[in-house]
Amino acid sequence: MKKLWLVLIALLLATGLSLAQNGVKKIRPAPQNYGKVVLNRYSEAARLAPVIYDHWLHRAKYTCRLCHVDLGFAMAANQTDIRAADNLNGNYCGSCHNGKSSFEGQKIFAACEAKTPPQDTATKQRCVRCHAQGQGVTPQNDFAAFTEKFHRVRFGNGVDWMQTESAGLVKLIDRLDGVSAKGKPFLNPVDSTIAPHTNGMPDIVFSHDKHAVWNGCELCHPDLFPSVEKNKAHSYSMNEIFDGKYCGACHGKVSFPMIECQKCHSKPVTP
């Protein structure tokens, strides 16, 4: 009897909550949390805390392309099938976090060291460096100190990554020996101007140059944007972008959020 009542009350509550999902303003993440990804595909099942991955720390050292093309990381959290064994075999995180590679003369700590979760506390302590969710770990790099000298913007991480890179404040590694294909990068096509569907919105100026620094060609083509054929414009809408497709695969998650319309809608409409 008690159960029946509980179920009915739960049902009533659930209906109420489902009605409340729209029309509410989302709360923006703090600058240090923008681009933070929590990975929990296997962690908790293996009695380890979920992994916290900060984009800001990694993107200050490597291009997006390196991880999302060459290393095969998917573009949404928990979609990549990363297991301890993969890292151990030098894939995914283990491509760099192998205990041998170094960055700017500093040895990069090894990711998972064993295929099975460790039993002793000492090793567990080492695991929480990545498996950090809810563990109260103080990260080695403090966001504010790390980004102090970078060019500033208002939103996202509060860092103008493009300016910071072009001013030489960060030097990005784009290729990894033994992993990335060798060869000369392609020449970038020119900027494109895209006319929006809606009257009253300025045209969008898309710079291939600015994107290619971080993404090369292959991060976007042909998966995200299949229409590379000239004069064969594929129509995509702001709605789809807000839903995480096309530009929304990165913008709004890691690259600058879609808050400042004029950052993309930057060309006066031709009368």
Binding site: N22, V24, I259
Partner: peptide, 30 residues
């Protein structure tokens, strides 16, 4: 600014904003 309302409060799909009712407005949404 556009982003004060879009897309959190009102998505920009035509006629598809779900549950946009007077009751929801009174509840402090939309």
């Amino acid at each position: 600014d556009c982003s004060n309302c879009h897309p959190d409060l009102f998505n920009i799909k035509k006629k598809t904003t779900q549950h946009f009712s007077m009751q929801a407005n009174l509840n402090g949404e939309f």
